[in-house]
């Protein structure tokens, strides 16, 4: 194992984050605060509880997930796309590092950053809405698992994209809509029966449901299903990255 190599990549990526700390942290925290003020306080105060959880508290797990998914994808995709774009990837490709080590470095750094951000948003939420976490260990586990899985997904996007627009397309056109429709702001039980079935094809439903369960013990789908789906997605992403490195797709040809 090239520990020094992993450390070099991880530090390089974290240094990039700290260079742009203000933009990295301030924007998502501010946006989420606005959500809490508008939906949690202003509109939420006129809405009834969902499964005996106040509306303001109900949307917290969904909002954290929304940020976690977007940040994980954008951190990791940008992290590997930049050296491809700038040409500095020659060094990574000529270095004695395996694809597992490259992943640990890049995905580890992207996931670290999004977990820190997720915790910051949770802290910010506490200012606006009182909430409690029923299963803190599960909450942290979901946070970590989702951050790693979606950083891996972002890494794949960063390998696939050949321009900056493509980097934005997947988060904007797929992930954000899936999150909004994945029960971030409502329980899927509130949907008409047909839509309740259709929405089960949205993978984000399982992430938000599981994460919300770790807070309030309430879930739209069974917790085992949430864990299974998250792991399933992680395995799909890992298999794809393994194939990319094995065949050299888009990077070594």
């Amino acid at each position: 194992m090239n520990i020094y190599g992993i450390r070099a990549i991880y530090h390089f990526e974290m240094a990039r984050t700290f260079r742009t700390l203000w933009e990295s942290i301030a924007a998502p925290v501010l946006t989420t605060s606005l959500y809490f003020i508008v939906f949690g306080k202003a509109i939420g105060s006129r809405m009834g509880d969902i499964d005996s959880v106040s509306y303001g508290a109900f949307i917290i797990p969904g909002l954290v997930m929304l940020n976690l998914l977007n940040e994980s994808i954008s951190n990791a995709s940008f992290g590997i796309y930049m050296p491809r774009w700038a040409g500095t990837i020659y060094e990574l490709l000529s270095a004695p590092v395996s694809w597992v080590e490259v992943l640990i470095g890049y995905v580890g750094a992207a996931a670290t950053k999004s977990v820190i951000l997720g915790l910051l948003i949770l802290g910010t939420a506490r200012i606006f809405v009182p909430y409690e976490i029923a299963h803190p260990l599960w909450m942290i586990s979901f946070l970590l698992l989702t951050a790693v899985t979606f950083s891996l997904f972002g890494f794949i996007i960063g390998l696939w994209a050949d321009n900056f627009q493509k980097l934005q397309v997947v988060p904007m056109l797929i992930v954000t809509p899936l999150t909004f429709l994945g029960g971030a702001f409502y329980s899927i039980n509130m949907l008409p029966p047909l839509w309740q079935k259709i929405t089960l094809f949205n993978p984000v439903v399982y992430l938000i449901s599981g994460f919300r369960w770790s807070f309030y013990g309430i879930a739209d789908v069974h917790i085992a299903m949430s864990i299974g789906m998250t792991f399933g997605f992680l395995i799909i992403c890992l298999t794809f990255v393994w194939w990319v490195f094995k065949t050299g797709y888009k990077i070594r040809n």
Binding site: Y4, R7, A8, I9, F12, A15, T88, Y90, A95
Partner: peptide
Amino acid sequence: HTDSFESVWATIKFSRGLFGKAP
């Protein structure tokens, strides 16, 4: 091909680490 935003020292330190050498 260079990392424009990095300092000279940081970039050569990165290279050494990437190639598996102790600082």
